[in-house]
Amino acid sequence: MNEQTPQMVPVDPDSDEPLRPYNQGLTPLHPPQKNLIRINMIIRALILLALGLAAEILLQVQLGTTPGMVLIPVALFALMLVLALPGRIYRRWGYDMGDEQLRVLRGFLWRTDTIVPFNRIQHIDVAQGPLQRAFGLSTLIVHTAGTHNSIVTLPGLATADAEAMRETIKGHIRQDMI
């Protein structure tokens, strides 16, 4: 475990946030990941807007509702998706390559903090989608033998970093753990 990770700092009830920063001082994801999240959010927002528009028209024709009753809240929500969320989601991701283990922290409301010891990893994937390729990003996926949470995914790494991490972990994989 890296000594500088402040995860063991006692929780001070008065000043909770400064002691536990968003990603607990772990390595943040590669910055372009934020834009990728935003693009994904824009796609979602557009789908949402299209659905909202359809509902709006349908309701207006069928029930004669006031214009904007559906569309305005939907648009506000879509705006929040695009403007407010990507930064928050990005900030709350974090990972840490220790000497013996990989730690992955994710989520804002539903937070999960996973530690995978390297010697428990069965195999590793480095995956890249078309959008990720445009940003030079890759996803590192490690598989353990466990049944619960046997696949740990870490998106938004620079491709070179992901490949370096894969090489590091590869050295620790052992045969026949189970």
Binding site: D16, L109, P117, T144, H148, S150
Partner: peptide
């Protein structure tokens, strides 16, 4: 195999967490 610490939205105000042991 793995150890997870997770928090649901209801856990944040009480500062609770759930520990999941992956075997």
């Amino acid at each position: 195999q793995t150890v997870d610490v997770s928090q649901s939205p209801l856990d944040h105000p009480l500062d609770l967490a759930t520990l999941t042991i992956g075997i």
